[in-house]
Amino acid sequence: MTPDPIRVLCVDDHAFMADGLRARFDQEPGIELAGRRSSADGLLGAVDETAATVVLMDIEMPGPDPFEAIENLARHRPDVRAILFSAFVRDHYIDQAVAAGAWGYLSKGDPPDDVVRAIRAVAAGEFAMSREVADRAAGPGPKAPEPDTPRSKLALLTPREIQVLRLIGRGLSRVEIAQTLHRSPKTIDVHRASIMEKLGVNDRVDLVRFALREGLAEL
């Protein structure tokens, strides 16, 4: 009996991404593109509709926080596995991904073959990391690790703060951020102040720049 094909839901706001994946999956037995969405909004519903078994989720997208969506998915549909798929590789994304319940973290710089392999591995119960990610995930080398120095300043931030920073990077106002995260604007102010203090940044422009550099948002 042929096992059920791996049905991949592509959540990415770039139109070409899903088409490219489909073209690639067409060459692969046992993997097919179940559908595409352009944001993490209504992920659970989309998974149900498309009968997806694996979700390939971009990080920099407008709409709800992808990590929260993954968390939600892991809680309600543990049978469906989410893999983060981003143009940027960051230590903190790895950590956030794992914390949120993702099964993998891939880079869009990876060759498509690696991505396909990773999807298969995840479907088989392994954790998938792209080469770049693996190098970093393994931590400091065998000799003399630097104790307790965060490798990225982002590691200093709480997941919520990273969320806020991402939205700042996208250029949302504090009211818009508050609405998106279902919090009060004052709470957002508190988060922003904390972020700026932790990152040692003095103004919004630098915050946005930092967010862009860290790949928390795209232009």
Binding site: L21, R209, E218
Partner: peptide, 30 residues
């Protein structure tokens, strides 16, 4: 820094385009 920021964004955008293109290339290759 500004260039870098723009550049990073551009690089990021490029990856989003390059991956699907490589997928298609792989498909063509087969």
């Amino acid at each position: 820094a500004s260039i870098g920021t723009l550049g990073a964004g551009l690089g990021h955008d490029m990856k989003n385009l390059l991956f699907p293109m490589r997928c298609r290339l792989d498909a063509l290759d087969r």
